[in-house]
Nucleic acid binder design. Structure first.
Lengths: 194, 194
DNA sequence: CGCGGGTTTGATGATGCTCAAGCCCGGTGG
DNA sequence: CCACCGGGCTTGAGCATCATCAAACCCGCG
C-alpha cells in the first residue's frame, strides 16, 4: 500500500528514500477507506489530515448561501486532498471534502508530517515542489478566470486534465470551471459543431 | 535601507535574526530604484529576481491576444514582487511586472536566496509562511471568482486591501477583480446609492 | 490653454444564469 | 421482462450581468 507513496516521493527528489525513512513514513501515514459520499472534511472543522490518494476520487467544494456547490479542487490517484490553509494554519475550513468514488487514502496529521520533514530530506524536497506546483496551478486557473471565456477554459481543462474528465460528471467539471452545467453542455455542443 | 527587511523577517519567526545573519542578508539583497513604468520583468523572460518593496508600488499583469491587460497581482511597501513560478522553476514568464510608482526595492537572485535559506533558520520560517499566505490569498481570489458577483468581490477587496485602493487607479482594481473599468464604475455608483 | 490619464455615462449586444421541462440510461423491484 | 426511478445531460425561453464602443467629462500639470 505505502509503496505507491514511496515511489511518488522519489519522483520529486534526487535523494531517494532509504529503508529507515520508509519505515517512518509507513508509521505516519495511516490507510483509510472512504466510501463514496463520505466526508474527509466538513465546513467549519479544522482539517486534521492531508490525504494521499491511492485509489478513488475526491472533491473539495464550498456551498454558497443559495445552497449551490462550487468545486475548488478535484483529486484522484497520486494526488493529495485536504484544505492546506486550514491544515497549516489550524483554522476552521470554509470547504467540504468528500469522496466521489470509494477511495483508499493514506492520512497524515500535521505533527506527524512536521516530524517527517525534520527527518527526511526527500520529503522536504517534495513539499517544496508540491507547494510550487500548487501555487502555479492555482494561478493558472485564476488567470483563466479573469482573462478567458468559458469555452477557452474548457479546452484548456480538457488538455490539462484529461484524467479528470473521465472520472467526474459534467456538472462537477462545470462548477470547477466556474459555469453552470447548462452552459457547459451548450459549449460542448458548439465545439462539436465545429 | 535593509532594516525594514530585517524587521519584516522577524515578524514571521520566533528566532530573531542575529548580527551575522543580517550581514548575509545585506549582501544578498541589492537595492534597486525602479522608475514608474519601468519593467522588473517582461513576458518571455525568466524572472531572475524576487523584489522586496521598500517604497513604491508595482503590478504584475498579462496581456491577452486582444491587447488588454489583466492584473494578476499588486504590491506595495512590505510586499514582494516577482513571478514565483518563473523564479522557482526557471521557466519563461507569461507575465509582465512593472512599477506603477517610482519604487525602491531590494532584489535577490535564486542562488543567493537558496544560500540564505541554508544558513538562516528565520528565513526558512518566513518562506514557509509566505508560501502559505500566498496560496491562501490566491485561493480566496479564485473562490470569489467562481462563486461571487463582481459587487461582492469589490466589497471584499475594499475591506481586505484598503491600502491598495488608495494607490492604484480604478481601472487597475477593476482588472484585478476581473471586470472592466466601466463595470466597476457602475458598481461603485450602485453601492453609493444604497 | 490644452493635453493626458482617469472616470463616468449611455446604448447595444454577448455571455452566461435561472427555471422548467424532457430525455437518456442503468439500475431495482414487482 | 417490464415499469419505474434517479442521476446526469440536454434544450428552450426569458432575464441578469457584464463587455464593448463611443462620447463626454474632470482635473492636475506643463
Amino acid at each position: 500500500m505505502h509503496e505507491i507513496l514511496y515511489k511518488y516521493i522519489n519522483r520529486f527528489t534526487a535523494i531517494p528514500l532509504i529503508e529507515r525513512e520508509m519505515e517512518l513514513i509507513k508509521n505516519a501515514f495511516v490507510l483509510k477507506k472512504i466510501r463514496k459520499r463520505q466526508y474527509l472534511l466538513q465546513e467549519g472543522e479544522i482539517c486534521k489530515y492531508l490525504a494521499f490518494i491511492i485509489k478513488g476520487a475526491m472533491r473539495q467544494y464550498r456551498v454558497d448561501d443559495k445552497g449551490s456547490e462550487h468545486i475548488m479542487g478535484l483529486s484522484i490517484e497520486n494526488w493529495w486532498a485536504g484544505d492546506r490553509e486550514s491544515f497549516s494554519m489550524l483554522k476552521p475550513s470554509a470547504y467540504n471534502i468528500d469522496a466521489w468514488e470509494d477511495t483508499d487514502a493514506l492520512l497524515v496529521t500535521k505533527p506527524e508530517l512536521t516530524n517527517l520533514l525534520k527527518q527526511i530530506p526527500a520529503m522536504v524536497d517534495m513539499k517544496r515542489k508540491l507547494g510550487e506546483n500548487n501555487l502555479t496551478a492555482t494561478q493558472r486557473r485564476l488567470d483563466a478566470l479573469i482573462s478567458s471565456s468559458a469555452e477557452k477554459r474548457l479546452i484548456d481543462f480538457e488538455s490539462t486534465y484529461p484524467e479528470l474528465l473521465q472520472r467526474f460528471p459534467q456538472h462537477i467539471i462545470a462548477s470547477y470551471l466556474g459555469v453552470t452545467k447548462e452552459t457547459l453542455s451548450r459549449i460542448r455542443r458548439q465545439l462539436v459543431e465545429k
